[in-house]
Each structure stands twice: as C-alpha cells, then as structure tokens.
Design a protein around this nucleic acid. Structure first.
Lengths: 235, 235
DNA sequence: CATGAAAAAATTGTATGCAAAATTAAAAAT
DNA sequence: ATTTTTAATTTTGCATACAATTTTTTCATG
C-alpha cells in the first residue's frame, strides 16, 4: 500500500465514492508532464526513475503507459523501453489537418445544434477573449480561446466526436506548448474567431465549418513550422 | 515463461527480429473477440477466465485491457472489473456520424492526393465489388467494400487521420457484425460507391467528400437501427 | 588506438503474492 | 416469509520477484 497520494487528489467524481484508480492518476500526471515538457519529445521513459519520482510501483506506471501509447503520446518499443513521442513537423501538420477537419465537422453540426444557452456562453467567452486581446493579456486570452474551441466541439452534441477530438487535442496542446508564440497571428486569429461566431450566430453550418477548419489549419501551419528543428531528444 | 504461443503467430514484422510483446498480442486477440462477439457487449471481463483461456498471466491481460479501454472497446470500472463496451444506439449513431465526417475529410484530400497507382487500384477493387454484387457474393463484396474505404482514407496521405480512423473503425466493425444485413441497402450502396468513384476520378474533392460522407452516414443509420434492442448483456 | 568478445549491470516483460474491495452465501432478526 | 447483518469467498489493484533481454563496462587482441 503506497503512502499518501503523491499526486493532486482528483476532484470529487459525479459518481460518489468511486476513487480513481492509481494507473489513471499516473496517466493523467504523465500526460501533463508530456504536454508541458517535463518529459521531452523523444526522451526515453525510465520506469525506475519515474517510479521513484512518483513513489509508486511499476505496475500502475506500465499500465498508464499503455493508455498513453494508445493516445499517441508515448511510443512503446518491446524490450527497449518506451519513448515520449517525438515532435515531428510532418506529423504535426497531419495532426492539425486532422483536427481542423474534425473541428470543421463539429462546427457544422454545432451551428444547427447549439442551444441558446450554449450560444450565449460562446458569445460571452468571445467578448472576454476580445477584451483580453485588446488588453494584451495573452494567458487569459488563450484560455478563452481554448474554451471556445472546446465548447464548439461539445456543441455538436456528439460524444464520440468529442472524445476523439480530445485525444488529438492533447497532442495539439503539446505542439502548441513547444511552439513559439507568434504575435502577428494573434490579430488574425481574433478576426477569424469573429467570423466563426458570425456563422454560428447565423446557424450557417457550412460557413461555420469552413471558417473554423481554416482557422485551425492556419494555426497548425504556423505551429508546425515552429516545431521544425526544435530541440528534442534524438530518436 | 509461458508455453508455446497460444495465439496465432504475428506476421513477420517489417522491423526484423522484433518480437511482438505479449500484451499487444493479447490486445489483438481481445479486439477480435470483441468485434466478433465472443466477448459480448456489456459482458463482464473475468480476468481469471480469460487468463485460463489464453494461458497467460494476469499482467499482460491487464495491460491489454488498458489499451482497449483507450480505444473505447472496453470500459474500466475501478474495483469492479472491466466490461465490454455496450452497443448503444445513440452512441452508434454518433460513431457513424464521426466516421462519416472523417471519411468525408479523407475523401476530400484523397481526391487531390491519390497517386495514379492508388486510383487504379481503387478502380479495380470497385469493379471487383460490382462483380460480387452482380453474382450475389456478399462476403467478398464486403471485403472489397471495406478495402475501398480503407484505401480512400489512406489516399488522404495523412497518418494521423488514418490511425484515428482506424480506432473508430474497429468499433464500427463491431456494430456491423451485430447488425443484420439489409438487402435493399446493397444496391443503394453500390450506386453510391459508383458516385464516389466518379468524384475521385474527376479529382473533385468536395463531391467525393460529400458522397462518401453521406454514404457512411446512411449506412450508419441503418446499422444503428439494427443495433437498437439487440440482445446484449445488461449493463 | 580501434575492434570484438566476454562479463557485469541495468532494464524490461511477465508471473506471482498479498491486502483491499466487492460479491456471494449463510445466519440472525423482524 | 422478508430483510438485515455477518461471514466467507472471490476478484481487483498494486507490489514484488524472477527470468529474459538489452545496455554498459571491462578485457583481450591486432
């Protein structure tokens, strides 16, 4: 029995009294470490080191790694240990292209399916995002931006699409984390978001989809460019 | 050390001398059992029983279950054992809607990116598929049909899209396995495939995408209907 | 000094053990 | 007869052990 949980306690679950399995907590922790660079692209995963850091036995760690491998965050190599998935430009482009496609589909559906409450929430977030842009507050801007994307995908009211998007989103977050912030893209992005909101407001699915897809794809191209040649562990 | 591998030997890997980890073999085996109904929707996964059947220890089985859970084929319930993901109509609809969207995106890209060799291969497969339909040979018809879908997705030349599609495809295959074959849908389907091929031949991405997406969505609606009320283990 | 072979050390994959949690069965209370 | 409580059994999650594989280090040779 391991000592007190070395990881942040999970929030109270909607299903009361169900504690989160350790292997899931480990997976969550590792996801964060991968996205935010504590585990670098291409880095060899040392079970022994990680177990020591996290004060757990190898079993939940190994199980967590299987989960993360299925999500594409880790690459398993039989008998040679796992590595953190390298950040490769071609794959980053493909990732953003795929996500752009999915967000486009989501936006098309969302335009028809968003409830009034959801649409109002989006409007509020969008206004807040514009305010952050005007005030030059990047961090809250980015948080609003991400939340808008998430709400649009959720607005499609398709859980399979949402969860599939969620997997890819983790990988996208990592790429964004490693890419440099590009200031000129900021104003473009805000303008594009305006057009997306216009289309959603008008319940114009085709336009919403096209605008959102293009927006994500443009962002992706810039991120992929920034990722190219980044310092990652040789793979 | 377990005795001789109770599962079919994996094909020689493109990377020579790398043997497939047991947990991956187990995952492959379980996937097949889930898709083809040996493990039924909603069924409780008994580690002890499966380990006995497969003649393995619990560790690789547990690791394989994590992989399959990430793929949506199994639902983990802490301390209460895993269950095979139930086959629910709403979720089946969402699944097909998502796949339709992804195949639409793929077809749009494929229309532009398919090499001549790939297009020729598709034409051949399509001709063979029509022949099977005319001869009333369902099984080879279906094999051609699936291969055409796979090739179109591959023709987008985007590996992230392809592998994401692959995950969902497993779940779709399961739903199809459980659904009844619907004869009137057969001729419709062939006609739709003709239109898809026309669009691809014309390098018309928008049309190819629309036709393929609509085709998958129509199929999905019928499958979801068939899945409704199916005999699955109470969840 | 470079290369190859052998030995030692480290790591990985899987099997097994054990305590905790859940489920089932039996006994007691109503 | 039904419900509740208690006891027994089974299952699960995780820790640990062990053999196989890989990597690193050491030694021998040209």
């Amino acid at each position: 029995m391991p000592p007190a949980d070395p990881m942040p306690s999970p929030p109270a679950a909607p299903q009361p009294l169900r504690r989160t399995a350790l292997h899931e907590q480990v997976a969550t922790r590792l996801r964060d470490m991968i996205v935010h660079g504590a585990l670098r692209p291409g880095e060899r995963v040392s079970e022994a080191t990680l177990c020591e850091q996290l004060d757990i036995s190898r079993t939940p760690l190994r199980e967590a790694l299987k989960t993360l491998a299925a999500e594409g965050l880790v690459e398993l190599r039989p008998n040679r240990g796992a590595v953190i998935t390298p950040l490769r430009q071609p794959e980053t482009l493909e990732l953003f292209e795929t996500i752009a496609g999915m967000e486009r589909i989501a936006a098309e559906h969302a335009a028809e399916r968003l409830s009034l409450a959801e649409l109002r929430k989006l409007e509020k977030l969008h206004d807040r995002m514009e305010a952050c842009h005007n005030a030059g507050d990047l961090k809250p801007y980015f948080a609003c931006n991400q939340e808008i994307h998430r709400l649009i995908v959720a607005g499609a009211h398709n859980k399979v699409l949402q969860s599939t998007h969620g997997f890819l989103h983790t990988r996208m977050s990592r790429a964004r984390y490693f890419a440099l912030f590009v200031p000129q893209r900021w104003s473009e992005s805000v303008a594009e978001h305006r057009r997306i909101m216009d289309a959603l407001r008008a319940r114009d699915g085709a336009r919403a989809g096209a605008e959102l897809g293009a927006h994500v794809w443009r962002t992706g191209q810039i991120i992929a460019q920034a990722v190219d040649g980044l310092d990652s562990v040789a793979s």
